[in-house]
Simulated scan of single mutants.
Amino acid sequence: MSNVAQALLQFAGVQPSLFASNSRYQATPTATYTTGGGLQVAYLLRRFVPQPAQLAEVAQYTVTQGDRLDICAARYLGDPTLFWRLCDANGVLRPWQATATVGTVLRICLPQGIAGVQNAG
């Protein structure tokens, strides 16, 4: 990114990210560590996984034989790389565990920080 573009973004209050907009780390802040020799090393701060109950559920999906989380993400979220949102919504740390058992009901939720409509039924 050019210095002019960075200046415009900072003037507008937008912080550039090292991660794509669909990355689970996009909103995770970074910090800088300075070594004894004066070398500055940027690093990613810890991403805290949200509690599933804090996410607004918009749908449910029952796992069938041969399901894959990336395909479910493409179907329900419009992007297969958002599989991590399904993991967050269902308290799963390893993606393959979410679809390992036929009959498991997956929660499809809004992203963290976006409130849903209560009792919209």
Rank of each mutant, 00 (worst) to 15 (best):
Q10I: 11
L77N: 03
A20N: 15
L9V: 10
S2Y: 09
Q10M: 06
R75I: 04
G116M: 06
V105C: 02
G78D: 09
V14W: 09
S2L: 07
C87P: 02
A120D: 10
F83H: 04
P50A: 03
Q6F: 13
S2C: 05
V105I: 15
N119P: 00
L69T: 08
C87N: 06
D67N: 14
L55R: 01
D79H: 11
A89S: 14
F11K: 14
A120G: 01
Y33D: 13
V58R: 09
A59K: 07
A42T: 14
R75M: 05
G38F: 06
R47Q: 11
S23A: 13
L8H: 06
D70E: 11
L8V: 12
Y61D: 01
N119M: 12
N22R: 04
A98L: 07
R68V: 06
A20M: 14
Q6L: 15
T101W: 02
W96G: 04
P80I: 00
T30H: 12
F48P: 04
C87D: 06
I71A: 08
I71G: 07
L110F: 05
N119K: 09
Y25P: 02
I114Q: 12
Q15G: 10
V102E: 05
A120R: 11
Q40M: 08
F83G: 00
L9C: 04
Y61H: 15
V117P: 02
L82P: 01
Y43T: 08
T99V: 15
Y76W: 13
A100Q: 14
T104L: 02
F19L: 09
A27W: 03
A56I: 01
L44I: 09
R24N: 13
L77C: 10
L9F: 14
I71L: 13
L93C: 02
W96H: 09
P50Q: 00
A12R: 10
S23L: 12
A20F: 07
R24F: 03
Y33E: 14
Y25T: 11
A20Y: 10
R94F: 03
L18S: 12
L82G: 01
Y33A: 13
V117D: 10
S23V: 11
R46K: 15
P29F: 02
G121M: 05
V102I: 11
A27I: 15
L18I: 11
A31W: 06
G66E: 07
L86E: 01
V58Q: 03
Q26H: 15
R24T: 09
A74M: 03
T35F: 00
A5N: 07
L86S: 08
D88A: 00
G116D: 00
L110M: 13
G116P: 04
F48W: 03
V105D: 03
C72A: 14
G66Q: 13
A115L: 11
R24I: 08
L55Q: 05
N90M: 01
P52G: 00
E57H: 05
P29M: 03
P52Q: 07
Q40F: 02
V63H: 04
S17R: 04
A120E: 14
A98S: 09
Q97M: 15
Q112W: 05
R94M: 05
W96E: 15
V102D: 06
A12T: 04
G116N: 05
G13Q: 11
N22M: 00
Q51F: 02
Q112M: 03
V49L: 03
